[in-house]
């Protein structure tokens, strides 16, 4: 390089920009709680819904573990109850609708961080179906299967008998649509939302807890909101 070269000398601005970006990233992690409150306050006032595409825009997010999920409706939906029970049963959507319905309004908390406040769920208490089937004394847990063909979940019998665990038919005061896991999904109010299996098709009473789909991939089996998965969210019940 000769002496008139405009390069090879000069301030190392590139390095400063690089290190500055790293520093801002670290600062962002520390300042996130305050920043997040700010963005949520700004974004919650949006009537267009476009901000739903932005981070923390609120609302539900669609998660499925399979490539495609068959659609089921009143014509072909079936929910079976079997395993360690005296009276295995099979329910159509009409059967489930004819049973006593319970409505609850709680927050929904996903383990990935999003929370949807005050969401109404309505359906049949799981304990009602278990009592109708006659759970045997050797049973200790309930295993759930789904008609997406892959997802599974589990609860201990004690958890499954809680009054805030539903076989849900309605969400947000509408019949549950396909993308939200309809026509029937599990709703486990006090736990992270991955416990509320979508597209519920089978309830099997078992002796011991069999870890579900995400639980085999490192998620906690007892998924109490605020007391599991290393998170401290405000409990939903």
């Amino acid at each position: 390089m000769n002496s008139e070269s405009p390069q090879g000398r000069g301030a190392p601005v590139g390095r400063r920009v690089f290190l500055g970006t790293l520093g801002l990233g670290a600062l962002g992690i520390v300042a996130a709680p305050a920043l997040q409150r700010g963005t949520e306050a700004v974004l919650s006032g949006d009537p267009t819904g476009l901000t739903g595409l932005l981070p923390n825009g609120g609302g539900f997010r669609y998660y499925s573990v399979t490539s495609s999920v068959p659609h089921k409706d009143a014509k072909n939906y079936q929910l079976t109850v079997d395993g360690l029970v005296d009276r295995p049963a099979s329910y159509t959507l009409a059967d489930l609708r004819a049973l006593p319905q319970t409505r609850m309004v709680r927050d929904v908390q996903c383990v990935t961080g999003w929370r949807v406040p005050g969401t109404p769920f309505e359906g049949v208490r799981l304990s009602h179906l278990l009592d109708a089937a006659g759970v045997r004394s050797t049973a200790g847990a309930v295993h759930f299967t789904c008609f997406d063909g892959a997802y599974t979940e589990s609860l201990t019998l004690e958890q499954a008998r809680r009054a805030d665990v539903l076989v849900a038919l309605r969400m947000q005061d509408k019949d549950i649509g396909h993308s939200h896991g309809g026509p029937v999904r599990l709703y486990v109010a006090p736990m992270y939302f991955y416990k509320s299996a979508k597209w519920l098709s089978g309830i099997t009473v078992t002796q011991d807890v069999e870890p579900g789909f995400w639980e085999e991939r490192g998620y906690d089996i007892d998924a109490w909101v605020g007391r599991s998965n290393g998170r401290d969210d405000e409990p939903t019940t």
Binding site: G25, G28, I29, A32, P33, Q36, G230
Partner: peptide
């Protein structure tokens, strides 16, 4: 956890 929540926030917006 607080770091992780912050990391999620930074990851989302920086993405």
């Amino acid at each position: 956890l607080t770091w992780r929540t912050g990391a999620t926030f930074v990851h989302d917006w920086l993405a």
